[in-house]
């Protein structure tokens, strides 16, 4: 109910702003909606959203898997930390645009180049978060696992992973928002479809309703994924914590 109210407030603000600024710069909600409907009818909306989502899913999975493994290793083994740290700082501070442009130059305007570039942008933040998580692991529970001679796999699943879960969730959430942003840049610069490509087209034609239609439908998808996937996952992970009765 509160969410609905907040959504209504957003539409109202938009509408009033469009009346004040003028249709040319900020079209009113109905104009954007009709463009959205037209794109949906032609099927272009779904093709482009689908292409972007697929790139997000692939790059996100790749970066999370690799980043978590590297971060865990760096948090646990000080040699790995000392070796990896300069690389990590370099990657963290490398602008997304540089990675994307270089990837396109070296590997051509290909899908592989785009996804790799997006993943490389997300990778260091996942490493940093998981490294903090691995450093914060409770040594008392490690000792318990050793004393009871828990096999490695079982100890990892029941002792280590639940302690890392909040860090994985944090890395996933910040990583997802980062990937959403960077995927559009990569598409804008070098892919023939996707939300980023359509926004590029709209920019060149100064087609503001089209630009807003794609931006907002994309934001809608993000919101749905957050509500349906990320939040229930977090709730499940923290169900053992005491809740206020």
């Amino acid at each position: 109910m509160l969410r609905l109210l907040s959504f209504a407030l957003f539409i109202a603000t938009w509408w009033i702003a469009s009346l004040l600024i003028g249709d040319a710069k900020l079209p009113a909600p109905p104009a954007v909606l009709s463009v959205l409907a037209a794109e949906a009818r032609s099927g272009a909306l779904f093709v482009n959203l689908g292409a972007t989502l697929a790139r997000v899913a692939l790059a996100f999975t790749l970066a999370m898997a690799l980043g978590s493994a590297i971060g865990y290793l760096m948090g646990r083994v000080s040699l790995a930390d000392r070796l990896g740290d300069p690389w990590l700082i370099l990657l963290l501070n490398l602008p997304a645009l540089v990675v994307i442009v270089l990837a396109y130059i070296w590997a051509g305007l290909t899908e592989v180049a785009a996804i790799t570039a997006i993943a490389i942008n997300k990778l260091p933040t996942a490493v940093v978060t998981l490294r903090e998580g691995a450093r914060a692991l409770d040594p008392a529970l490690d000792e318990m696992a050793t004393a009871f001679a828990l096999p490695r796999g079982r100890a990892f699943r029941h002792v280590v992973l639940p302690q890392l879960a909040p860090y994985i969730a944090a890395a996933a959430r910040s990583g997802l928002s980062l990937v959403w942003k960077i995927v559009l840049v990569a598409e804008y610069l070098g892919r023939p479809n996707g939300v980023g490509f359509e926004i590029g087209v709209a920019f060149q034609l100064f087609d503001i309703p089209l630009l807003l239609a794609y931006s907002l439908s994309f934001a809608g998808v993000v919101l749905v994924i957050e509500t349906v996937l990320v939040q229930p996952f977090e709730t499940r992970l923290t169900r053992w914590r005491l809740r206020a009765a």
């Binding site: 529970l141 828990l150 639940p162």
Partner: peptide, 27 residues
């Protein structure tokens, strides 16, 4: 030799139930 240890603090896994805590150590 199988070792059973009771530490000064209980050192249970807070994210597992009582029964799971026992079964993880003693499958």
């Amino acid at each position: 030799m199988r070792l059973g240890m009771v530490f000064q603090e209980p050192r249970l896994l807070p994210w597992r139930t009582v029964e799971e805590n026992v079964r993880i150590a003693a499958p």
